[in-house]
């Protein structure tokens, strides 16, 4: 990505403003932080308006109104049923007016109903049934020269780990005796999982820092007159 000198300069200065927080909170950091909030909120709104609202609502409900700058709307008939979506959208905005804010529940109810209806099926299929199916694997794995010990052990770890992890999440009975021992294995499995997640999180954060340093180096080269 090639950035203009102006983009590099502004970006470099804002980067240093944010990094100044490492020393302590200060007005430069606060300036950058507040700017970030304002710019990102507007960015999302603009993208939402031009990316979705105009082509998927306005151009469908009132094609004649926007056809001068949205050619795909030319010659189309209005699709009035999209006014339902517009109504729900406007009702959502009533949250900004406390006296009629309760009307926003209607839109919220649509969003909740939609999410519940789609999640019910998709989580059941992809995250429950498919996951159980993927865990139904042979405990004894045959290799080229007979029993494949390594693969068999790995499969055992997976099956036992999933089972014991689920037992640990089973809160309807106290974890004592055999149940307690099984759930303890579940805890160990989860600890390995969290350790892996920790390692990957460190990796991720370092990568982001490296990316920023690379950008700073490009800017500093520009400042020092290099290319």
């Amino acid at each position: 990505m090639n950035l203009s000198p102006a983009e590099l300069w502004i970006g470099g200065i804002l980067t240093l403003m944010i990094f100044s927080f490492l020393y302590r909170d200060n007005p430069f950091y606060k300036f950058a932080e507040h700017l970030f909030v304002g710019v990102s909120a507007a960015y999302w709104m603009v993208q939402g308006v031009w990316g979705t609202l105009m082509p998927n609502l306005v151009a469908k409900v009132a094609p004649g109104m926007v056809q001068s700058f949205m050619p795909e709307a030319a010659g189309k008939n209005p699709e009035w049923h999209y006014l339902i979506a517009a109504l729900f959208g406007v009702l959502l905005l009533t949250r900004l007016v406390p006296s009629i804010g309760w009307l926003s529940r209607w839109s919220l109810a649509f969003v909740v109903g939609y999410s519940a209806g789609t999640n019910f099926i998709r989580y059941l299929q992809s995250d429950f049934i498919a996951q159980i199916r993927s865990t139904m694997i042979p405990l004894v794995v045959q290799g080229q020269g007979g029993l494949d010990l390594g693969a068999s052990f790995s499969h055992l770890v997976l099956i036992v780990g999933v089972f014991c992890g689920l037992v640990y999440f089973f809160f309807s009975k106290e974890h004592h005796g055999a149940l307690g021992r099984v759930s303890r294995i579940g805890v160990w499995t989860l600890m390995v999982t969290f350790g892996a997640s920790f390692g990957y999180t460190v990796m991720a954060r370092i990568s982001l820092l490296l990316g920023r340093l690379q950008a700073l180096i490009i800017w500093l080269r520009l400042v020092s007159g290099g290319s």
């Binding site: 059941l124 997976l158 780990g161 992890g165 579940g186 999982t193």
Partner: peptide, 15 residues
């Protein structure tokens, strides 16, 4: 393996 096992238990629980 162990990470997948732990994550899968979490995924099933969340599902």
């Amino acid at each position: 393996w162990p990470n997948t096992a732990g994550q899968r238990a979490i995924v099933i629980g969340i599902a």
